[in-house]
Amino acid sequence: MIPIVLNVNDVNYEIMVNPGEMLLDTLRKIGFTSVKKSCDTGACGICSVLVDGKVIPSCSYFTMKIQNKKVITIDGVEEKAREIGQFLLDEGVDQCGFCTPGLIMSIIAMENELNEFTEKNIKHYLVGNICRCSGYEGQIRAIKNYLEVS
């Protein structure tokens, strides 16, 4: 076990980790159950968190890499999550909810990164966020409304 300092949502956590531990497992161990494990291969977007502002799949990111970096989970952006979440609710696409925190983190990253929000750009940016419940159409409606693009 190796001692590290992990900065999550602006709080420093001093913890012991296994050398090969993935960030997702570490976050859940500390108590951030909002980050979920789904495909465990970096292919579904469910476990998305922000590391220094970039959205990454935490299931595929070694915790040891994280030192001196800042991690943000949905717990650290509660107000923004509610804001974006309300648009999802208004379309009814918060179905089983399992994909939603990862989707919201990705939307936050997308908002900060892209300059042009066409439907094509949005879909390309968020293609890594798999959803089995909604069929995506409603999610795109909600996101467009949120971005105030028609």
Binding site: G42, V55, Y61, S106, M110, L126, V127
Partner: peptide
């Protein structure tokens, strides 16, 4: 690189 995984994967 455009269609290698999603943006999340391409960030690592």
């Amino acid at each position: 690189v455009k269609q290698i995984g999603g943006v999340q994967l391409r960030n690592i």
